[in-house]
């Protein structure tokens, strides 16, 4: 008696993981940071995340259909969701709804699908979306509310919704009264105006080592990042290189002149540096492939961020730094091929 059998290729073992599982793990790792964000800045962030995800999936579906690709596996891979969430975490919690729409249009349609879709994008889509809206709508994108602990006005869920969809803020004096400069902004304008860093840092928006609230958000993102490291979803090289290069570069400046240079921890725990170190610069698609390449890539992100923060026109430069290094990644790859066995 002969029987016939299925002849699928090796390995003949159940697959270990899927793209969707990897992306879900990233999303899971973002949860503590997102919760901390909500705790310090109110529910606006959650609305932004939902908005960005909806727009991202919408554009993803449109592009997939337009390109004649199957919808199901690519919608279900959660890569667009990760892009959306990372973007939403970078914008002011009460930014108007169309910011997400425009950013996701550029992130998903231009940065992702016009480059070939999943796995083909040269630039980090979330950062492309963010930079497009940051450059185009600087006023909206810098309208940050202070942490709830310092705010006269703390918007609830309904207020946040209303503000996001109407653009009106129910505060006497409007946006000018409600918003406040971020710690990095304060620092930059203060230093530019010739004030001493310790003096600037005595303002209430600064915390123990970063911005008030911000430092704790960063901590929770770092926790999520450590979870990803433990799960080996990301390698240690990029986060260590980003944070390490920031510390190494800012330390001598601070030691030489602590009055006009913030100390290294201040750099790390303000702005989006920790988020970028663990979640954005670690994007494998637009990063480097070898471990040595990843170290160079991460160091490049850290150093460029510091340069932009110190001498550039923007208070935080992480997004630009990531995009610049994305451009350099193929070149770095060419010169950092690991030694092969027996070579």
């Amino acid at each position: 008696m002969t029987r016939s059998f299925d002849t699928g290729g090796a390995p003949h073992l159940p697959p270990q993981t899927t793209v969707a599982a990897v992306m879900l793990q990233v999303l899971l790792a973002l949860v503590p940071g997102v919760l901390a964000y909500t705790w310090f800045f109110g529910p606006g962030m959650l609305i932004q995340i939902i908005l960005a995800v909806v727009f991202a999936l919408l554009f993803e579906a449109l592009m997939l259909r337009w390109r004649g690709w199957p919808l199901k596996p690519f919608i279900n891979d959660y890569s667009a969701v990760v892009t959306a969430v990372l973007f939403a975490l970078c914008i002011p919690p009460l930014a108007p709804w169309w910011i997400s729409c425009i950013a996701m249009l550029f992130a998903i349609v231009f940065a992702k699908h016009l480059y070939g879709g999943l796995g083909q994008n040269v630039f980090n889509p979330a950062m492309v979306g963010y930079v497009v809206v940051l450059i185009s709508f600087p006023q909206v994108m810098t309208a940050w509310l202070p942490p709830l602990a310092l705010a006269d006005y703390s918007p609830g869920l309904m207020d946040s919704l209303a503000t996001i969809f109407t653009g009106q803020i129910p505060v006497a004096g409007g946006w000018d009264a409600a918003t406040q400069a971020t710690p990095l902004d304060t620092l930059k304008t203060g230093v530019d105006a010739g004030r001493m860093v310790p003096e600037i840092r005595s303002a209430p928006i600064f915390g123990d080592y970063g911005g008030l609230g911000w430092e704790w958000i960063a901590n929770w993102f770092a926790l999520g990042g450590i979870f990803l490291l433990y799960k080996r979803t990301i390698n240690w090289h990029v986060p260590v290189a980003v944070i390490g290069s920031v510390v190494l570069l800012s330390l001598p400046f601070w030691l030489a002149d602590p009055d006009s240079n913030p100390f290294p921890l201040q750099h790390i725990f303000s702005g989006a540096l920790v988020l970028a170190a663990f979640f954005i610069a670690t994007d494998p698609v637009s990063g480097c492939v070898s471990n040595r390449g990843r170290l160079i890539f991460g160091a490049g992100v850290g150093i460029t961020t510091l340069i932009i923060r110190r001498w550039g026109g923007y208070p935080d430069g992480v997004a630009f730094a990531v995009l610049l290094m994305n451009m350099a990644a193929p070149l770095i790859d060419r010169y950092t091929r690991p030694r092969m066995y027996g070579e």
Partner: peptide
């Protein structure tokens, strides 16, 4: 043991 064949996705360079 082998599970249904999974759809092949693009490389994400992980």
């Amino acid at each position: 043991d082998i599970v249904a064949p999974q759809p092949e996705m693009p490389c994400i360079r992980c």
